[in-house]
Nucleic acid binder design. Structure first.
Length: 830
RNA sequence: GGCCGAGUGGCGGAAUUGGCAGACGCGGCGGAUUCAAAAUCCGCUUCCCUCGGGAGUGUCGGUUCGAGUCCGACCUCGGCUACCA
């Protein structure tokens, strides 16, 4: 592999010869491709590192500058680890199912697969042009049937474990658009696009029982090395709260169950509220109130969740009914109001206006009495929601909130009127979509039909008897369609593919009809487990071999946007835990360290968007300055996690630095070999130490700054070979093409990645002498050059020699001397 | 409203975690080179000033010999979340 050499330019050796990324970058990319430089080792050593990027959705717009930010960070980690001899897994792939390709298909008739393939090819080209060291033989595509097969296989494991089930869920159905809409796509009961009416409709959906894992998903957050804010967000999303279930009897009718986190305030419950959809509403409503209640229920029904929550105004209607407070036998009026949600707890609350803001607002608006039961310090006209000491609470008076909670719950339980209960905000996961471009469910149902259901002969699909497709028949492929328009059938686009949907099978010697599930999985499905497939992407016997998973899991570092802090990361952890329980993966958690890169804003300091016209295209930057400059600039902008604005001018500064690196390598090649004196040597080793630790801490901006300083120094020193070689090794993870080019110019064989990582000599990191500032009463008055191991006496002696210090000492008495070796000498004089 | 994060030159940002505030880069100014320009290189660049110094890290207060860093109160901006009983 010696056919690669430093670039030959027409003016070699003259002043015209320049650092020319347009020439060297494609050359080294071709070399890497041919030499397969970045293959994952087949027999990984003991020291292993799995560095993972959140894989992109390959959109038609191509890469934006946010992609190279985190991808460069992980590439620096991967390359520097490989240089150190670590076995690295650094893969890339495509989260390629999803709505945009389908929408494009609806508009243009182009099959989503064609759009997806074209977009992937463009993304791959762009990523290769950036010189990332991915092992492309492990590329994964969530839409590839060989991948879908295992996504479906995992679904079947969930299904067999009772974690996947069907349920009627109230969704936003828009008949005009023929599709279900997300809450944020519904405004004022109309579709966001087109303004068509949207109704709340119960539809059959596939659900995943993620709530069963709520406690473990919460507990697992304790042990992961994640940003604190992300752990808090996931914790709040799971939303565990401890409280009690309390039974309120209703005369002559079914009792009402409520959930409360404040059973200690039961004596202050002056009314109850049922959600408008609560099943007991009709029962408790008196004739006199029926009309008003029905009108309110009807109005609430067609409001989306979002609309319902938009207005904070506390509306509601009295039902006329009363319930009995179990602790004191008091009769409390029962209201209905939409601030109580059917989906949480029991859909009914006991309202304690004295100690709950929402109940307080409601009571104030509707003239309901307020009884204080916890002594607090809230100002008049406000309610006290904190903890304190009980009052107006019978035998519990004088006890603390925590004690009353425990005592009342215990007493209620003894009376059979309540018990402790834990609630979660987390809901089971609605896992089906009525789209085309997603994974089909490996599920079918029996059909009763006298004729042929494909010909619309009358038939019944028995959705209550789902049958799993045999694992040997996976994957279930999508049918070919040429019309991707949503239809009027809530069963989804696939319902129109009748030849695909309905099929016959022999059962007990008789041909029977069956119908495939026509929903598809959401985009989250593929991204829930792609990091597992990377470990062993071509395995046909399993989603990945046990050995491969044991070798690489858990992921050592995972870098991606904070927008996935909750959903993607929660869903992936859920699947991982299920697979762990079934023995398919070796670790309880998938990801070790997690980092979110910050957003890159436009030059105007606001989010990049087409509408604002402030979008920077990486292709343009590469054309103007090269990939290495783009990579280094993005790392130099500031801390990886920070949001920071783009500044095109500043790229020039980074490029100048790369140019200088190239120049010192050329100086060596052309015979200039400056003396590697002690001072230069020390600078080199200090930079090695700084860059090495900065990479470990992901402080790429300061690592580059240190290399900028060193390259200037090496140039001044006449490019001593040993120093330039160290510089090349330090630079190469950041600017890999330049690193290879420098290495070649220095007369070495590629790849520089195999040249090892430089090691700092600890002896060279300490200076013999140090400059220490001398302060008088905290103000700097002089700087002394002292031996590094100087004692306080020696420092004082030197300080007295300084005229300014001597003068200050003469003006007052020395009260105190603070001497911190190598840091400071502070003299307190009065 | 709640939670999280951040406020340092004209700008992006450094600061060994309590020890010389402003590294490095952009921009600006001055100079070299050039017939000229581009490119390149060198120097200066927090503010005020009487050239000795004085002030200075969102505001006010505190701890300390010493605070950008720690503590308390507040202000501003950004992100997420939002009636979850």
């Amino acid at each position: 592999m010696t056919d690669i050499q430093a670039s030959e330019t027409p003016n070699e050796g003259t002043d015209e010869e320049r650092y020319d990324p347009a020439t060297i970058e494609p050359k080294w990319q071709a070399y890497w491709e041919k030499a397969q430089t970045f293959l994952t080792p087949e027999k990984p050593g003991e020291d292993r590192y799995y560095v993972l990027d959140m894989f992109p959705y390959p959109s038609g717009a191509g890469l934006h500058v946010g992609h190279p930010e985190s991808y460069t960070a992980t590439d620096i980690l991967a390359r520097s680890k490989r240089a150190k001899g670590t076995s690295v897994l650094h893969p890339m792939g495509w989260d390629a199912f999803g709505l945009p390709a389908e929408q494009h298909a609806i508009k243009t008739g182009t099959h989503p697969r064609d759009t997806t393939v074209a977009n992937i090819n463009n993304f791959r080209r762009q990523l290769k042009a950036l010189g990332f060291s991915y092992d492309w033989t492990r590329e994964v595509d969530t839409t590839d049937p060989a991948y879908v097969r295992w996504t479906q296989w995992i679904f079947l494991q969930l299904f067999h474990a009772g974690l996947a089930y069907q349920d009627e869920v109230s969704v936003n159905w828009c008949a005009a658009l023929g599709t279900v809409l997300a809450n944020e796509e519904v405004i004022d009961g109309k579709s966001e696009r087109g303004g068509h009416p949207v109704e709340r409709l119960p539809l059959r959906q596939w659900m995943l029982r993620i709530t069963k894992y709520a406690d473990r998903l919460l507990a697992g957050l304790e042990g992961v090395d994640w940003p604190n804010s992300t752990r808090i967000m996931q914790g709040e999303w799971i939303g565990r709260s401890e409280g009690a279930e309390v039974t309120f009897e209703v005369k002559g009718q079914k009792p009402i169950e409520v959930f409360t986190t404040r059973p200690d305030t039961l004596f202050g419950a002056t009314f109850m509220v049922l959600a408008p959809e609560h099943p007991l509403v009709a029962e408790v409503t008196t004739e006199a109130q029926r009309e008003a209640v029905e009108a309110y229920v009807a109005k609430a029904k067609n409001k989306s969740d979002r609309d319902r929550q938009q207005s904070k105004e506390k509306t509601g209607v009295f039902t006329g009914g009363h319930a009995i407070n179990p602790v004191n036998g008091a009769e409390v009026p029962i209201w209905i109001a939409d601030y109580v949600l059917m989906g949480y707890g029991t859909g009914a609350i006991m309202a304690v206006p004295a100690h709950d803001t929402r109940d307080f607002e409601f009571a104030t608006a509707h003239g309901i009495p307020v009884i204080e039961v916890v002594k607090g310090d809230a100002p008049e006209g406000e309610c006290f929601t904190g903890h304190g000491v009980a009052m107006n609470s019978g035998k519990y008076d004088g006890m603390t909130t925590a004690d009353v909670k425990a005592a009342i719950t215990k007493d209620l339980e003894a009376d059979g009127k309540g018990k402790a209960r834990v609630e979660y905000k987390l809901r089971d996961w609605v896992f089906s979509r009525q789209r085309y471009w997603g994974e089909p469910f490996p599920i079918y149902f029996p059909v009763t039909c006298d004729g042929d259901p494909r010909k619309d002969d009358e038939h019944t699909i028995h959705y209550d008897q789902p049958i799993a497709v045999d694992e040997s028949e996976l994957p279930v492929r999508l049918p070919e369609l040429d019309d991707f328009q949503p239809g009027d059938d809530p069963a989804g686009v696939l319902a129109r593919a009748k030849d695909w949907r309905f099929f016959q099978k022999d059962v007990e010697g008789e041909k029977r009809w069956f119908a495939r599930e026509t929903n598809t999985m959401p985009q989250w499905a593929g991204s829930c487990w792609y990091y597992l497939r990377y470990c062993d992407p071509h395995n046909e016997e399993a989603l990945a071999s046990k050995e491969a998973l044991e070798t690489w899991l858990p992921v050592d570092i995972y870098i991606g946007g904070a927008e996935h802090a909750v959903l993607h990361l929660l869903y992936a952890r859920f699947w991982h835990m299920v697979l762990y329980d079934q023995g398919h993966v070796p670790t309880p958690e998938p990801f070790g360290k997690l980092v979110h890169q910050g957003m890159i804003l436009g030059e105007d300091g606001v989010k990049m968007s087409k509408a604002r016209g402030n979008v920077i295209n990486p292709d343009d930057v590469i054309a103007a300055h090269g990939a290495d400059s783009l990579r280094c600039y993005e790392m130099f902008m500031g801390p990886l996690e920070a949001t920071k604005p783009w500044n095109t001018d500043a790229i020039g500064g980074v490029r100048k630095w790369l140019d200088r690196c190239w120049k010192v390598a050329r100086m060596v090649r052309d015979g200039s070999d400056g003396a590697y004196d002690e001072a230069t040597k020390k600078s080199v080793h200090k930079t090695i130490a700084k860059v090495t630790s900065d990479i470990d801490e992901l402080k790429f901006n300061t690592a580059i700054s240190a290399m900028m300083v060193l390259s200037k120094e090496l140039e001044k020193a006449g490019a001593p070979r040993e120093g330039v070689e160290a510089l090349a090794k330090l630079v190469h993870p950041f600017a890999p093409h330049l690193g290879e080019e420098m290495w070649a110019m220095l007369g070495h064989e590629p790849s520089i990645q195999n040249a090892g990582w430089p090691e700092a000599d600890p002896k060279l990191l300490v200076d013999d002498t140090v400059e220490i500032p001398v302060q008088v009463n905290g103000k700097k008055r002089a700087v002394l050059e002292l031996a590094a191991d100087a004692t306080e006496d020696q420092a004082m002696e030197a300080a007295k020699q300084d005229p300014k210090i001597a003068e200050a000492l003469g003006e007052g008495t020395l009260r105190k001397v603070i001497f911190v070796p190598k840091r400071i000498l502070n003299l307190i004089i009065k």
